[in-house]
Write a protein that binds this DNA or RNA. Sequence first.
DNA 1: TATTAGAAGAGAATGATTATTATTTAATAA
DNA 2: TTATTAAATAATAATCATTCTCTTCTAATA
Lengths: 147, 147
Amino acid sequence: MHDPKIRLEKMIDNLKRHGYKITPQRLAILRILAYSLGHPSVEEIYQQIRIDFPTISIATVYKNISTMKTLGEVLELGFGNDSSRYDGHTPYPHPHVICTKCKKIVDSQLENFQDFTQKVIQETGFSIVNHRIDFFGLCPDCQRQNS
Amino acid sequence: MHDPKIRLEKMIDNLKRHGYKITPQRLAILRILAYSLGHPSVEEIYQQIRIDFPTISIATVYKNISTMKTLGEVLELGFGNDSSRYDGHTPYPHPHVICTKCKKIVDSQLENFQDFTQKVIQETGFSIVNHRIDFFGLCPDCQRQNS
DNA sequence: TATTAGAAGAGAATGATTATTATTTAATAA
DNA sequence: TTATTAAATAATAATCATTCTCTTCTAATA
């Protein structure tokens, strides 16, 4: 689940299996989603693809990401009014660490959330199917600049 | 921190201490924030206040909530494109449990996030100052309706 | 009661996202 | 290899929550 090439293959297979066509624009979007560790925004993906496809529409980026969301191949991280960020590298729920200054988003590898989920189920009676865990602070780079 | 009357007093004190005026509209908004356990949206607050203040503007609701946010007296829960929900009852970070069907939001009392925060600090080198923890699923009521 | 800084009200502006529609193209089969 | 066709793209309009602007009003104070 960590090799971008394999991620890309898996995305393409999943699309084909569901009868979607593999267009050059779509492939370019998939590549960014699979290879990017940096949780890009739609705007960033759009600007990067415009280098090779100057006529692409930002609506095409939105639509393709939406498709990948429904196939479970990308995780959307929405932040209130700010534009969403996307994780196509690790598309299942996991903690993120967000720098409030430079907006960098880093994955965390902590995994013991089954215990918490169980406690929440007991406490509230909800049936839990998903979670979102974010930590906010300053990344090492921005800490240095502040001192 | 759990008695609505005391919450309301604290909010009013905090506003006065910072030189804000206590207007009837503001007071009505504070009352909803302090007493409501249901994490209301701006629209819900607006509709409720219109009963007593038919001429109030929704911008006034937004502006007052924004003021309370800067004073740390209300916690904003943004959800991507959907409208934000507000917690004026327990205005510091704590886990929330959200029903994906009826949009109900319930507080969780789980508190052991210092350990996780420490691990995230060690893992990433970030300085963590805040967090957001949400669990998504079906509330007991909606589970019944589905079966 | 007069003064005045801050608040309210109305509506325009913004910005991310979604919808619409005409045109183009990937996939398939003859 | 080419024709067919359903789906994808591009361009643009529409939407919706939120913020901004500006004028009018009012709570606090002296």
